[in-house]
Simulated scan of single mutants.
Amino acid sequence: MSALDLLVAAAVAMIAGGINSIAGGGSLILFPTLVALGLGTVEANVTNSVAQWPGYLGGVAGFRPEYRGQRSRIVRLGLVAVLGGTVGSVLLLTTPTEAFDVVVPVLVLLASSLLALQPLVTARLRRQDDDAAAGDPVWLYVALFLATVYGGYFGGALGVILVGVLGLALHRLKLANALKSALSAVTASVTVVVFGLFGDVHWGVVAVAAPAGLLGGFVGARIATRIPTAPLRAFIVCFGVAVSVYLFLRI
């Protein structure tokens, strides 16, 4: 990649990190950018996963006040995320590139659709939101495992899925949003280890995109409650649908 390509990757990674903290769906911006810069779909996916990892850590730092009293819950759910992320990332590396090329347009379209439906899910969760302590239903662990398998395999709009699952289970939307960042970070950490050891990661992109994503994730978490997310979400959804159509045509 040229210096200009790396600069573009860094700029988009910073935006993606902020988007992940504010509305979710940052992968729908960075992944197709890396493909457009010349990476193969699998290489772009693993590079995207590794590069965005610091952005998730920035989001966790920004939501830190929300984690008071949640240590045991984070540990329990985090262990499930480790298992799911491992299964998903290993599945990606053992899937033929040709098969992933066929599946990825569907995944991008699915992620875009989930992001579009997020306001409906959020509205429902807000109506049932309360501050009462809630236990963790058994189905939450099953749903979380399946969600993080998806996150390890592709990861687009994983945050949207996690907010929906956690919100429905815990009836606390603010806590669900904070836990989403923590569990996304856990899943991303697993993919960093697996992809870093066994995946075809473009480390030049990671070197510039990772710190940019960290900054974007932290800033995004700090301003998540201060800016309107609807226009940003609409742009990401439209962009994701366009990317999906493009990838379909490439098959």
Rank of each mutant, 00 (worst) to 15 (best):
G24A: 09
F100P: 07
V90C: 04
A143G: 15
M14W: 06
L120R: 15
G18P: 06
S49I: 06
G25V: 03
L79C: 13
Y150W: 06
R124W: 15
A116F: 15
L4H: 13
A143E: 08
A133L: 07
G220E: 04
L30W: 04
L247H: 06
L117C: 11
L117E: 12
S21G: 00
F154K: 01
G24T: 04
V87M: 13
I22H: 01
L140P: 07
G213R: 02
V106F: 15
A16D: 10
S184H: 02
S72H: 14
A10G: 12
P32F: 06
I161W: 12
L247G: 00
L162V: 01
I19A: 09
L166T: 08
L125R: 10
G40V: 02
A11E: 06
V102Y: 13
G40Y: 00
D130R: 09
D129S: 07
F248G: 02
V50Y: 04
L162R: 04
Q128W: 07
V142W: 08
A99V: 13
A169F: 06
G196K: 12
Q128E: 14
L215V: 15
V138R: 12
G88D: 12
R250M: 11
P105C: 00
V106Q: 01
G59M: 04
G199K: 10
A10H: 12
V194D: 13
P65M: 01
L92V: 01
V186Y: 11
I161E: 02
I223M: 12
V42N: 02
V163Y: 01
S184L: 11
A147R: 02
A61Q: 09
R76P: 01
H202D: 14
Y153K: 00
R126Q: 13
L183W: 00
L232D: 02
V104L: 11
L37P: 10
Y153S: 00
K180T: 10
A224C: 11
A185C: 14
P211F: 09
V192T: 04
I22W: 03
S113D: 07
P137Y: 05
T229H: 15
P54M: 07
T94I: 14
A10M: 11
A178V: 02
G40D: 13
L30I: 07
A230V: 15
P105W: 01
W203F: 03
Q52R: 03
S112G: 14
L77R: 08
I29C: 00
V205Q: 05
A123D: 13
L162Q: 12
G62I: 08
V142G: 15
I236R: 02
S112D: 10
G18C: 01
G40C: 00
T95Q: 09
V80P: 10
R250T: 14
Y150S: 04
A61L: 14
R124V: 03
V149R: 01
L39N: 03
D131R: 12
D129W: 00
T225H: 14
A99Q: 12
V106I: 15
